[in-house]
């Protein structure tokens, strides 16, 4: 009944992983075909897919850390936006990119603390708490934004030596700027923490049956606080990615709904880091394709329609394909201690 990985259990293995395997092979064949046909475009689309997925996967990790501990965070959009702005401002006034990123992470964590305070301690409806953060971020960034500020550079790709020489994979995977690398590492890290450490076990218990955790001496409030704050830091990193890595500047409302798409990504990924990564890549691909179609000029469709692609995908995925995804049982319910 344990992992059916051994050869003797190959039937079970095929039954369990067969569809995934078939999908992966089909995908590889498809990519190979297009790479043989037009290598530059394929490379560009795939590299863009990865980069477009970065804020989504970071946002989704933020969302799932919170929801695994039963705190719904719909303020990811606001956390990203304010973090993008603060990261940009710090960079403008200090000239330092690292300080900018750290400031973004810190402000994301701070907004996470605000959300945790509202939803865990004050037990405000979590949807309202998240909305407060979104409105706050739009208001603050809109009010303090000044036209004409410019960042001192942006985070540049760091080629990983000889690995970049591998055709296709090298350019796509091993020649990326730092936050893109970080986002991939974070997927693995969050998966490890969530499923292989005591902290992760406790987090999931708090999200499923907080009273059970409480009766075993686990501090439910502390677990929720820490997860929401760490999640906020990840959303902050996504914000810093947008202003200091992707664009190198700040624009009003530059998150453009990515915080909400990140929630769709989290749900599509069934509240797991790898699921979220896969979903984020799918959405990233939709965005990359959209850009390619708009500027490639091969297709004669009004650009407004092509621009809808990622959002259309969100709606289709959420309406039709989520299926039996089961959120943590206590998701969104504030915890009341007895006595």
């Amino acid at each position: 009944m344990t992992t059916p990985a051994s050869f003797a259990n190959w039937k079970l293995f095929v039954k369990r992983w067969g569809w995934w395997l078939a999908g992966a092979v089909a995908l590889a064949v498809l990519i190979g075909y297009y790479y043989a046909k037009s290598p530059q475009i394929t490379e560009a689309v795939l590299a863009s897919t990865l980069r477009q997925s970065v804020p989504l996967v970071l946002g989704a990790l933020c969302g799932l850390l919170g929801e695994r501990a039963a705190v719904i965070n719909i303020g990811i959009e606001g956390q990203m936006l304010l973090a993008a702005f603060i990261a940009f401002l710090v960079n403008v006034y200090t000239g330092n990119l690292l300080l900018g990123v750290l400031a973004g992470v810190a402000i994301g964590a701070l907004l996470g603390l605000l959300l945790a305070f509202m939803s865990v301690s004050l037990k405000i409806d979590q949807i309202i708490g998240g909305t407060v953060i979104n409105i706050l971020a739009i208001g603050l960034t809109g009010y303090f934004y000044k036209v004409g500020l410019s960042a001192h550079g942006k985070l540049n790709p760091i080629p990983l030596g000889p690995l970049t020489k591998i055709p296709l994979i090298g350019t796509v995977l091993f020649n990326n700027p730092p936050i893109t690398y970080a986002s991939i590492l974070l997927v693995f890290l969050v998966h490890y923490v969530l499923f292989y450490t005591p902290w992760g076990l406790r987090t999931r218990a708090v999200g499923e049956h907080p009273r059970a955790a409480d009766t075993l001496g686990i501090n439910v409030y502390l677990v929720r606080y820490v997860n929401v704050v760490v999640g906020g830091a990840l959303a902050g990193l996504a914000g810093a990615y947008l202003s200091l890595e992707a664009v190198g500047s700040f624009e009003r409302l530059m998150t453009n709904g990515r915080g909400f798409v990140a929630l769709a990504v989290m749900i599509f990924g069934k509240w797991t880091p790898f699921g979220a990564w896969g979903a984020a890549l799918l959405f990233g691909f939709a965005s990359a394709l959209q850009t390619q179609l708009q500027f490639g000029g091969q297709v004669q469709i009004p650009h407004q329609f092509i621009g809808m692609l990622p959002y259309l995908l969100t709606i289709i995925v959420l309406a039709g394909f989520v299926g039996k995804a089961r959120p943590p049982a206590a998701d969104g319910i504030p915890y009341e201690k007895e006595g």
Binding site: Y196, T197, L201, R202, R204, H209, A212, A213, T215, L216
Partner: peptide
Amino acid sequence: FMLVPVFTVAENLILGAEPTKGWTL
């Protein structure tokens, strides 16, 4: 019952007093 329904028996047993190897459960 104070059991987490989606956890296994072993996971429920150790919750809150987990044996570890390094950082890992």
